[in-house]
Structures are given as C-alpha cells and as structure tokens.
C-alpha cells in the first residue's frame, strides 16, 4: 500500500487498481473548520484535474480536484453528516472517495510523503 500526494494537498492511498482520495492534514489546517463537503456521485467518471468535490469552511468554499482520472467507485457518506471529520482525521476516517485508476502513468506525476513534506515546509 502506497500513499501519494498532489501539490493541491490531496492524498491517494493506492491499493491494487483503486485509489482512496482525501485532503491532507496541512490542507484542513489551512481551510479551518469544515462545515460541508460536496462529494461526487458514485459512477461518475472523473478526468484528472477536474473539480471533483467541494470543501466548505465557515468562510469559503474550496474545490478538490481529481488527482487522477477514473470512475468514482464509492464516496464517504459519513462526511455529509459529520463534515468536521475532515478537521479531526483528514488522512484517515475523512477520506472523500475511491476511484478506479484509469491510467497508472498518471501516478508517476505524484509526490511521495517526503516530497510532499518538503512541498509544504
């Protein structure tokens, strides 16, 4: 199991041909108190860099972009009733959606944890 990161502060946990996607702890700190998460519908096919989800804090709405292309297999319904999970457990329980990896080459452009740490330092 590998975890990769994007420069837009998303994480992807790769398990076989499925990636679980969320936003990083750094991102949730920048956003502040999350009050609403708008998730994509399961079955939707996302193109890399397309707006896939929205995270809203008291003050503002921020887009979450698809880090890779593929079909949305499952979304985390728990975030609808408990958006504050994004603040308390961004890189764990507050995953956003699972996506079927359409093109493994797209993973090549992502960062490992050390590179992401350097990116946010």
């Amino acid at each position: 199991m590998t975890t990769l990161f994007t420069s837009d502060h998303e994480w992807l946990r790769i398990e076989g041909d499925v990636a679980t996607v969320g936003i990083t702890d750094y991102a949730q700190q920048q956003l502040g108190d999350v009050v609403f998460v708008d998730l994509p519908k399961a079955g939707r096919t996302l193109k890399k860099a397309e707006a896939a989800a929205v995270v809203e804090s008291v003050k503002a709405a921020s887009d979450v972009y698809a880090p890779i292309s593929g079909e949305v297999l499952e979304v985390n319904e728990e975030l609808s009733s408990e958006p504050a999970l994004v603040n308390s457990d961004a890189e764990g329980k507050a995953w956003f959606f699972k996506i079927k990896i359409a093109d493994r080459n797209e993973l090549g452009g992502l960062m490992d944890e050390a590179a992401y740490k350097a990116h946010t330092a």
Binding site: G32, D33, V35, S57, V58, K59
Partner: peptide, 12 residues
C-alpha cells in the same frame, strides 16, 4: 485579523 488560533467557528 480574519481569525485567531481558535478559528472562526470557536470564535463565533
């Protein structure tokens, strides 16, 4: 100041 350490929600 738009917010302090506590954050908008707690300040409110």
């Amino acid at each position: 100041p738009v917010q302090y350490a506590a954050g908008v929600l707690k300040e409110h």
